[in-house]
Write a protein that binds this DNA or RNA. Structure first.
Length: 116
DNA sequence: GAGGTGACGACCC
DNA sequence: TGGGTCGCCACCT
């Protein structure tokens, strides 16, 4: 696979799948981690295709910069909110409560890593 | 084949 | 300090 087929789509899925339980991330965080902060839109698109990708991506753990469950409408009903609450994340007004507390950024990881 | 849309974000004025 | 505009790349029509 030395091809250049390294589209950032699979990268987004890879990062999204690394989101730990009870934590959430933002489109911008993933996009920035990939080096394409301006392509945050594509991250959302990747989530849209997440249902078409396996293993399934916990897109319900991905919210926008405001902590708003923008993708909730795409999940269908309040499924996204229910899933987040199921993980211990409080949701109010379709927003993640204490987003900064549950916010998880790729690259930081939980323990420690080589990081760069 | 081409154009428009899209689950956002950053930059500019 | 806030509001407005552009950019990004892939998928759909």
């Amino acid at each position: 696979m030395s091809k250049k087929s390294d589209s950032f789509f699979p990268k987004v899925y890879n990062v999204a799948r690394k989101i730990p339980f009870g934590r959430v991330t933002t489109y911008g965080a993933i996009a920035r981690y990939l080096g394409t902060a301006r392509s945050a839109r594509m991250v959302g698109w990747a989530m849209n295709q997440c249902g078409n990708v396996r293993p399934a991506v916990p897109a319900h753990r991905v919210v926008n910069r405001n902590g708003l469950l923008t993708g909730k409408h795409h999940f269908g009903s309040d499924l996204m909110q229910q899933l987040l609450e199921n993980e211990g994340i409080k949701i109010e007004e379709n927003r993640v409560v204490d987003l900064k507390k549950v916010l998880w950024e790729p690259g930081k990881k939980q323990g420690k890593a080589k990081r760069r």
